[in-house]
Amino acid sequence: MIQLEHVTKTYPKASRPSLDDVSVSIEKGEFVFFIGPSGSGKSTIIKLLLHEITPNKGRVYVNNKDVTSMRSWKIPTFRRTIGCVFQDFRLLPNRTAYENVAFALEVIGKTKAVARRVVPEVLELVGLGGKEHRYPHELSGGEQQRVAVARAFVNRPLILLADEPTGNLDPDTSIEIMRLLDRINRTGTTVVMVTHDSNIVNQMRRRVIEIESGRIVRDQARGVYG
């Protein structure tokens, strides 16, 4: 499903590579944590998988497609197969929960009728039933992140990428978000989550890949934060 082969990424002007000869393989339906200190290179992996950046060396395969050599006009279609959640939610402040999710559908060409059918369903799924018409500033942090998850999941992507999704949330809310991601994972969606929240990693007991200074130092099924 996801495969990195000897990937090296050095940002321009950086003294050492963010990722140094990293190889990793993730199967369909897996739930994987990437952990490591700030600046270890774990967020670089998310950017590589989204094709926001390209590696200096090595190959990146997502959904069995070689992302590294993908033509730029194919990237939008490719991204529709990936959902993405961030620490800062990235919701549109002038749109309601419903409109935020519907926006993601409409800009990829889905009709309003499709949105009317699908959006309430997915908002219900993430536990926001009844709050569809609230604006982001009227929602708690946890609720905002649920909207973001709904937006990421509404297209039923094959992969859900989460970049420190609980970074701005208190521990109880974080656990609720994790339950949600777990539910999504159980539908068969591959979930890749970057975090340094040890509590969560220890509770979930899923595959843990630890990165330090751009190298994989541990890859453990049902691992803990360490």
Binding site: I75, P76, R80, L92, A104, V107, G109, R151, N155
Partner: peptide, 17 residues
Amino acid sequence: RREVAVMKLVGASNWFI
């Protein structure tokens, strides 16, 4: 910029953006 970032993220086509 926020709308554009979201559009890019969810895979809106370039011409549409």
